[in-house]
Amino acid sequence: MAISEEEVEHIAKLSAFFLSDEEKKVFAKQLSEVLDCADVISEVDTSNVKPTSYITNLVNVLREDEVKPSLSIEEVMKNAPHVYEGVFKVPRII
């Protein structure tokens, strides 16, 4: 299962980070190796097997509809990288 550099680039875009050309090469090789290894699972017969998404038997964990205090605005903004008039600021979205 070889992954091309184009595929690597596509995945990097979905993952929201840039990769250098060098990184694309390395990742294409390493991801191919890891997936090659993982491909062993295709030999397992899983017809009639249910997937496990939850390892506990818990169901219906619900909380009552009660309002709890929110953070103070100082706490909210304490770690903000960029702030404009007390609000989180981001570059234009387009």
């Binding site: 509809d65 709890k68 929110s70 953070l71």
Partner: peptide, 26 residues
């Protein structure tokens, strides 16, 4: 509802920006 879907912050409309938030909302 009085509180949000997955945390206890108020679900009221409006308010000063980010005053109805908790670690989950952020």
């Amino acid at each position: 509802t009085a509180s949000k879907m997955f945390c206890g912050c108020s679900a009221l409309f409006g308010g000063e920006p980010n005053t109805h938030t908790c670690p989950g909302c952020l």
